[in-house]
Structure formats: structure tokens, C-alpha cells
Amino acid sequence: MNAIIENIDVLLSGFLTTLGLSALAGFTSFFGGLILAGFAISNNPTLRKISMLYVALMQNIPAAAHLFFMIFILPVLGLKAPFFVLAIIGVTIYFSAYYCQAVRSGVNAIGRGQLEASRALGLKNMQTMRLVVLPQGLRNSVPPLINTTIALIKVTAIAGVFGVTELFGTMLQLINVNDSAVIALMLVTGIGYSLITIPAALAAAAVERKVAFNS
């Protein structure tokens, strides 16, 4: 227990770094995902294929491999940046694909009839997209978007072994010097992650019940 009390400030700063890393990487990934999703639902077949190809490639490379590339291989190529920044880029490349899929699944969940009704009333393609598809699709996307964000927060822990002193990395450093407090440190770390992920999961479930309107 002493190890925890003595190092509470270090752990707290690790927790805050996790929050910061997740927030920044979450923001850039979401932005990237929106662009990819825009490609995926555009009327240009080439853009759709680019989006599909990106998702198929990046989603199937493990997060650890993405971070390995950013932190071990990029420096070999002469590109140097702080680990924190590299971790954000690595997570973004990976999670843009997931955010894209979350938006796409929301759009896919729209009934075909909604689109037909809009067309039959004389709305143009872009009006149908803006006024019928996006409002419903984005609303459908909220639960998968939250779940993707939870997954992202958990994946940022991998950055801890690649030299970023976020919560998990901090824990590893503390374990190195306090090998008698392994379990206690892990427990505290686990609680730290749960404090973010469990409320988010509850929120996702609540939103899911709320948006479950059917036509």
C-alpha cells in the first residue's frame, strides 16, 4: 500500500496523460474516420474503394504493430518526434478505420424506405444525404462511436510499453522499483481505466436504448 501512497502523484499524472492521449488521439481518429466515412458514402466509386482499402489494411494490422512502426521504425527512416506524438499518430492510423466503420454501420442501419420516400418526394441526392441520411445515420452511430472510443482508451495502454508515461507505462516503471507491490499497483491502474471506461460503456448502452427508434 505504501508504494501507492508514496507514488500517488506519479500515478495521477499518468492517469492525466492517459486522458490527454486518449482525448487527442480520439479527436484525430474521429476526424480521420469522418473523412473515410465520407469517402465510403460518396457517390464516387474510386473514393469508396480507397476508403475500403484503407480500412481493410489498417484495421487488420494490430495496434501493437502500428505503435511498433511509429516508435521503432520511423526513427530508422530519420523521422524523429516525441513518443507522445508518435503514439497519437499510430493510434490515429489504426482507429480512423474503426471510427469510419462505426459511422458506416450507422448509415447502413437506415431503412431503404427512408431513402425511397425522400427520393419520391423529389429531394436531390445531396438533400437526401444531408436531411435524411446523415441525421439518422449519425444518430445511429453514437453507440458504436462511444464503444470505439472505449476501445481506443484501452489501446492507448499499449503506448505505455513504447515509452509513453501514461497510466500503464507509469505502472510498469513503478513495478520496476517496487516489486513487492505488483498486485496493488495493477489494481490501482485497473481502477484508473475503469473510471473512464465503465461510465462510458453505461452511457453507450443508455444511448443505444434511446436511439432505437424504428421506422
Partner: peptide, 23 residues
């Protein structure tokens, strides 16, 4: 179930890897 789903997998792997010998 709810608690485990909220944890990073890497933490659980380390929990076994370092925790089992420690305990």
C-alpha cells in the same frame, strides 16, 4: 464480466505475467 470488459487487455496479460509469480 463488466469489470473485465472495461480493462485494457495488456493490463490483464501483465497481471498474469507478473502477478502470478509475485503471488
Amino acid at each position: 464480466v463488466e469489470a473485465l470488459r472495461g480493462l485494457p487487455e495488456i493490463l490483464l496479460v501483465f497481471l498474469i505475467y507478473l502477478g502470478v509469480p509475485a503471488v
